[in-house]
Design a protein around this nucleic acid. Structure first.
Lengths: 219, 219
DNA sequence: CTCCAATGTAGACGACTGTATACGCGAGCG
DNA sequence: CGCTCGCGTATACAGTCGTCTACATTGGAG
């Protein structure tokens, strides 16, 4: 009576599966990233669809998440908590001023290369239809922006810049880098150029703000 | 025999309808904008859903569009062809240099206020999952950016700037303004501030690029 | 007046969906 | 040992979906 069925009857209907030996939760997250990256918004996925791609029964989803929203937030947390501290470390590493922005951009772009789906989905959902998810991502962006502002003031990387100017500029900068990761992923041939341009963008914005202030054209 | 049914039997099951007397095509476009703005991606809508909101039979959709993609592209064309020429007209209106960016931003933001759904959906789909639609919107953005570059060179609005610098900066500028329209719509209390900040952004970027070039820190 | 093309409607089909209910198994703890 | 609990499965139901086929109305061109 203990050998009625080898237990992997449906499990072995794989051929398309996400990290075969991971727990169901990780498999579902992986499947969600893969599907959302190449098809539609995270919250427009179906639990059956997810189960199928993860090689699991549809109902297994509910063992781990109450709703798709919950799964989505779990994904955001995972990557944000990984990336933010690394960026701060770069800024505090004592690199020469002129290469700091470039180095940061390079790091983010390379990180994106290692987690492409996360960025594709992340940027998508930042502008997506779930207000909840959108706010979660924006909060992470703002956190990174705030840390960046703080560090720039501390190491006096951009002479002449003030706290209120940074408060205005930091978030657009972080958003810009975030957005550019997608071009970086999609156009491998332009990667060097994209790093250069994105660093230009940051430097020009900061330098220009200081210059405008000196010309009394700020405010 | 000519009065069997007043012909509006199902038509009058409205209570929620889009411009009651417009043709089916316009009603469907309106319904698509409204639904996509507050719920999910344009291409994730259902033709039945659209028909319902437009007060039409589900099948009527196919009388006007082959696919949702086709409807989406029609929407993009409609607004892009309206907005682009107006922006060009502002730049060529001979306004003083320092107020030009602000004036342009004001115009776009006000236009967004008159067509909120179009911008909510537009920004969403720019980062959405339909590569086709994404490309269509990007093409329009690039067109506006190219026209802007051309005009700036022609009226010598930013002394010291060159064509290749503009080629690099114009697109991020247009994208930034496009993105900011959403904040403008969502946060009525910050509207004046958002106009100011967005104009700052443009001016700082241009000014900064010229400054970096002079410092030999460009390239 | 007739005919046609454009537009809208009606009904039906099979496929797929979310989720409720119930069952199976194995690890860990008493 | 026995029991529970976390995880995965099986089945079933009612609802929604896209789309096919067939029909109705209407405005204008001939």
């Amino acid at each position: 009576m203990s050998l009625i069925k080898p237990r992997k009857s449906t499990r072995s209907t794989m051929a398309e599966r996400e990290s075969p030996d991971a727990g169901g939760r990780e498999r579902l997250i992986g499947a969600a990233l893969k599907l959302a990256a190449e098809k539609r918004s995270l919250l427009a996925l179906g639990v059956r669809e997810l189960g199928r791609m993860a090689g699991l029964n549809p109902n297994t989803f509910y063992r781990h998440f109450k709703t798709l929203d919950e799964l989505s937030l779990a994904i955001v947390d995972e990557f944000a908590e990984d990336l933010a501290p690394a960026l701060r470390a770069i800024r505090l590493s004592g690199l020469p001023t002129e290469t700091l922005s470039k180095r940061t951009v390079e790091y983010v772009f390379d990180y994106a290369r290692q987690h492409p789906e996360a960025f594709i989905v992340g940027v998508r959902e930042l502008h997506g239809s779930s207000h909840r998810l959108q706010q979660a991502i924006r909060a992470r962006i703002r956190l990174v922006a705030a840390e960046m502002s703080e560090d720039i003031l501390a190491i006096n990387n951009v002479p002449g810049i003030s706290a209120d100017m940074l408060e205005e500029l930091a978030e657009p900068v972080v958003e810009q880098v975030f957005h550019r990761t997608l071009d970086y992923l999609e156009e491998p041939k332009r990667r060097a150029e994209l790093v250069r341009r994105t660093a230009h963008f940051i430097d020009a914005l900061m330098t220009g703000a200081v210059a405008l202030k000196a010309m009394k054209r700020w405010d």
